[in-house]
Computed example of a mutant assay.
Amino acid sequence: MRILVPCGPALALALILAAPLAAHDYRAGALRIDHPVIRVASPVSKTGAGYLTITNTGKTPDRLLSVTTTAAARSDLHGTVQRGNVMQMRARASGVPVPAGARISFAPGSLHVMFIGLTSPLPEGRRIKARLHFEKAGSVDVEFKAQTAATHPR
């Protein structure tokens, strides 16, 4: 019995064009940025927390200086610190170091990008464009995929 598998230029073109749609990781020089997501309490929230992982595969340290987007009035780099029994967010005005050979995780209860004043609703799956600005690697455009806290608890 013979099984025919469709192939040819049309299939190849479809696969090539579909690849960027499925991709959710990015590169900037020796830096790899994996799986950026923005978590919102509900689709109509005005704030959201951005999470991602940055891996520095190089031999030179770098620093994430800022994140910009037109999808929010502003975006700040935040860290979380514990003071007694209370967790507090603190802006990281000097950026976030990305040491050579290290992996930095932005995750709930830790580092995150705070998107403040979101300009439109973010239903599950919608993506917002943002630009990460690094001290040495320069800027890289990424998309944060929206998740709601109800469907993606910690």
Results as ranks from 00 to 15, higher is better:
Ile16Gly: 06
Leu132Gly: 12
Leu21Asp: 11
Ala102Trp: 07
Ile116Ala: 11
Arg2Leu: 15
Pro121Trp: 14
Leu122Ala: 10
Asp25Tyr: 11
Asp25Lys: 01
Val113Cys: 01
Ala102Cys: 07
Thr60Arg: 04
Val81Thr: 02
Gly48Val: 01
Thr80Arg: 11
Ala150Tyr: 08
Gly50Ile: 01
Leu132Thr: 05
Pro36Tyr: 11
Leu77His: 01
Phe115Asn: 03
Ala100Asn: 01
Ser66Trp: 10
Gly48Asp: 03
Thr68Leu: 12
Ala107Val: 06
Leu4Tyr: 05
Ala137Asp: 05
Ile116His: 09
His35Asn: 13
His152Val: 14
Pro108Lys: 08
Gly50Val: 00
Tyr26Val: 07
His133Tyr: 09
Asp76Trp: 03
Val40Ile: 03
Asn56Asp: 14
Gln88Arg: 01
Pro99Glu: 09
Pro61Asn: 15
Ile16Gln: 08
Ser139Met: 13
Ile54His: 11
His24Gln: 12
Leu122Gln: 04
Gly48Lys: 04
Ser75Ala: 15
Pro121Gly: 11
Leu111Glu: 10
Thr53Asp: 07
His24Leu: 12
Ala22Asn: 04
Asp34His: 05
Pro9Asp: 14
Ala100Ile: 01
Asp76Leu: 14
Val5Asn: 03
Leu77Pro: 00
Thr60Leu: 07
Gln88Cys: 02
Ser42Tyr: 04
Ala73Lys: 02
His24Thr: 13
Met87Thr: 03
Leu118Val: 10
Arg154Asp: 14
Ala149Gly: 06
Ala10Met: 06
Ser94Asp: 13
Val86Glu: 08
Lys129Cys: 05
Ala28Lys: 01
Val44Asn: 01
Leu52Arg: 03
Gly95Lys: 04
Thr70Tyr: 03
Arg154Pro: 03
Gly138Cys: 14
Tyr26Thr: 07
Leu21Phe: 10
His78Arg: 08
Lys136Asn: 13
Ile54Gly: 05
Leu118Ala: 09
Gly109Cys: 05
Ser75Pro: 00
Gly95Arg: 05
Phe144Met: 11
Ala41Leu: 07
Asp62Gln: 08
Thr151Ala: 15
Pro61Glu: 15
Thr55Leu: 09
Leu132Val: 05
Gly138Asp: 15
Gln88Leu: 13
Pro43Val: 05
Ser110Cys: 04
Thr55Cys: 08
Arg32Ala: 13
Pro36His: 10
Pro99Ser: 10
Arg103Asn: 14
Ile38Glu: 05
Arg27Ala: 14
Gln147Glu: 14
Ala146Tyr: 01
Ala18His: 07
Arg131Trp: 09
Gly117Arg: 03
Arg126Met: 12
Ser42Trp: 04
Ala71Cys: 06
Leu31Glu: 00
Thr69Ile: 08
Ala18Gln: 07
Ala130Phe: 02
